[in-house]
Amino acid sequence: MYYKLTMEDKVRVPPNRLGEDLSDVILDVLQEQLEGSIDKEVGIFIAVTRVLEIGDGEIVPGDGAVYYGVTFEGLVLRLSLQEVIEGVVVEATSFGSFISLGPIDAMLHVSQISDEYINYDEKNGRLICQDSNRYIAVGDPVRARVVTLSLNEREPRDSKIGLTMRQAGLGSLTWLEEDRLAEKEQKSGGS
């Protein structure tokens, strides 16, 4: 889920930028430092939107920079286990597909796409269910559930997020739409 948070931190303002407008510099420094980074407690930082409060500056021995205690507002994505999310397929491989959740990609393993056997169509980059002939391809929007979360704070690119779609109500949005129509038809046909 996405959160808009108010956070506090100490910000180092380098001496060569002391002449500029303080809140601009602090916003710059925070954006440079945080955007794209991951904190296990807080989540994945997406944007630092504005600086709310700037405390007194402090000068530490041995460094000419000034350290300010700052309250600021930012947007983060905090994923949790079992969370249902929507994303877009960005890559299909023989072992599964990668789903873009926006700021980060997640992995959807072949075994977690559907209860059916899955074939990999290399030419078209699609993963096809053997019995129903339904498939997912690059660009498809899907709904899935987070089942593994391994976030790497130092190397955000090495973070691993595992998804599953083997559950009622999950899957490619086109499948869900098909299911809904089929159900509707069955109902109207039965009455």
Binding site: P14, P15, N16, L18, I59, D63, G64
Partner: peptide
């Protein structure tokens, strides 16, 4: 502290 700031490029 001020001399260090100036040497590091403060105005």
């Amino acid at each position: 502290a001020r001399a260090l700031q100036i040497s590091m490029g403060a105005p």
